[in-house]
Design a protein around this nucleic acid. Sequence first.
DNA 1: GTAATATATGAACACTTGCTCAACTATTCA
DNA 2: TGAATAGTTGAGCAAGTGTTCATATATTAC
Lengths: 96, 96
Amino acid sequence: MTLTELKAIQLAELFSALSDASRVRIISLLLDGELGVNALAEKLTMTESAVSHQLRGLRQMRFVRARKAGRQVFYRLDDDHIEKLYRMGLEHVEHK
Amino acid sequence: MTLTELKAIQLAELFSALSDASRVRIISLLLDGELGVNALAEKLTMTESAVSHQLRGLRQMRFVRARKAGRQVFYRLDDDHIEKLYRMGLEHVEHK
DNA sequence: GTAATATATGAACACTTGCTCAACTATTCA
DNA sequence: TGAATAGTTGAGCAAGTGTTCATATATTAC
């Protein structure tokens, strides 16, 4: 199975989105439904700024989608592929 | 689904192993069977040193396993979980 | 209009990562 | 023994990443 360099890069980018504990925890919280930035920040004990920066990356990779309501922005997972990847990873981590 | 900080870190580490194009290409080559460091280096057009450094990381994460035969060291995937993760990622990348 | 709230953004900085290069170990062959 | 081959390892460094802090934007309340 030879892989083009482009696809190798795309795959690496995909997995990079889950290669940081803060992002993993954001994904894990959004599995239960949408949350605003402030709620995420509180649950994660991170600053809103740090959360916002991470959400930006996740948004650009189409891992999450934003919905604006008044001055709040609610985020949710964009795609169930992400959930599958997450669960498969979790399974791997737990069965060792 | 609340995730402990430890598991978030472990998950992030797992996905980190696939978060680099060189490592992704190594995994993709090893899907077809074991290969020595030199053969990997040639197929990847990377130095043996660079490949060896990456293999070290993959070994530590138990993504690959080494078999020594004379002065050669053959690497293969350690676990079919990795293959599943890889294929799921590839599917995601290709269906967009 | 002003003030308060919710989020986004850019710069700066510490930390991490992946490579190169040189030196090293281990094995085979003569 | 010595030379050649296969791979590993550590130092050094450029590039990338995640956070903080200050500032900016957008919306709501007054």
